[in-house]
């Protein structure tokens, strides 16, 4: 299958890209790595009249430090995320989850920001961004604004990005203290989407879990935090029983779908099991 015809624009800067988007009107679409957009265009599920390709916007690539935050350019490829030393040091959860995304060919093209802006509920990176309290820096005609992860993911494939805006970078707070992190993913075959996955970051203090942040993948139209489990974990002794007890609440407040891969109640079961494993691994205990 071949996409429907479109005009192609390849800006070199964010400002040029914003102008191209404004000129393109409501049928313009941003092309990041293209690993989700090109397949849906081939299937004619999307037929934008203008495609604005960000591949050559150099300022959108790369990872840097800015005080207490790690700043990841939206067009940084998954491959570059996986091998980045700053991410390995400050947010290994991101690298661990990114390594499970699709396959190596797709990771060479696909981008961190593209995956977040696409906001597929089965995508791995939105739940990670949510668990780490990331902030999204968005450029638009009126300037830049910053949106917290809790407000960025609005609905199924829908984010806080307006049609004339571009996701520029993602700011991830560096975590202070003794944090462990783990991404636990369940799918059936290689390169498949997550049926359910759990991103956990746990801070230990004197043998206790001082704080836990848990993001859930594919337990609703947007990524979710396992708030009841997080609350149940705060301050408990880091042991298998306490973690299992807290993880039993992981599906509370979720709204998973029924589909070919799993029924909703099975997804709830998976959320509890995977949360137990993810938290135990993040706390340095055997799963």
């Amino acid at each position: 299958m071949i996409p429907a015809p479109f005009d192609y624009v390849r800006p070199a800067t964010v400002d040029e890209a914003l102008r191209a988007l404004a000129d393109g009107g409501e049928d313009a679409k941003i092309l990041a790595g293209g690993q989700s957009l090109i397949p849906v265009m081939r299937l004619r599920l999307a037929a934008p009249s203008v495609v604005v390709d960000l591949t050559r916007v150099a300022e959108l690539r790369g990872v840097r430090e800015d005080g207490d935050a790690l700043v990841i350019g939206a067009m940084t490829t998954h491959s570059d995320v996986v091998s980045d030393p700053l991410i390995a040091q400050h947010a290994p959860l991101i690298a661990q989850a990114t390594e499970t995304v699709a396959d190596r060919q797709v990771r060479h093209r696909g981008t961190f920001g593209g995956a977040l802006a696409h906001a597929d509920p089965a995508g791995d990176l939105p739940a990670v961004a949510l668990a780490l309290d990331a902030e999204f820096v968005i450029a638009g005609p009126a300037g830049r604004r910053t949106v917290p992860a809790r407000e960025f993911f609005v609905d199924y494939l829908t984010t806080a990005l307006a049609e004339d805006e571009i996701l520029v970078e993602i700011r991830v707070p560096k975590l202070a203290g003794q944090w462990g992190m783990h991404y636990e993913k369940f799918n059936r075959v290689a390169q498949a989407w997550s049926i359910v996955a759990v991103a956990a970051a746990v801070r230990r203090e004197d043998g206790h879990i001082a704080e836990a942040r848990i993001g859930l993948t594919n337990m609703g139209p947007t990524p979710l935090r396992a708030t009841a489990t997080e609350q149940a974990l705060a301050g408990v002794a880091a042991g298998a029983d306490a973690i299992a007890g807290a993880a039993a609440h992981a599906a509370e407040g979720t709204a998973p779908s029924d589909d070919l891969n799993a029924k909703a109640d099975y997804r709830e079961h998976l959320a509890r099991v995977l949360t137990r494993r993810a938290v135990a691994a993040a706390a340095g205990l055997p799963a």
């Binding site: 192609y8 390849r10 293209g34 690993q35 090109i38 397949p39 081939r42 390709d53 190596r104 060919q105 797709v106 060479h108 093209r109």
Partner: peptide, 10 residues
């Protein structure tokens, strides 16, 4: 390595 069905020639 890339999947050439998922890259535009341009």
């Amino acid at each position: 390595a890339v999947k050439s069905c998922t890259v535009l020639a341009v």
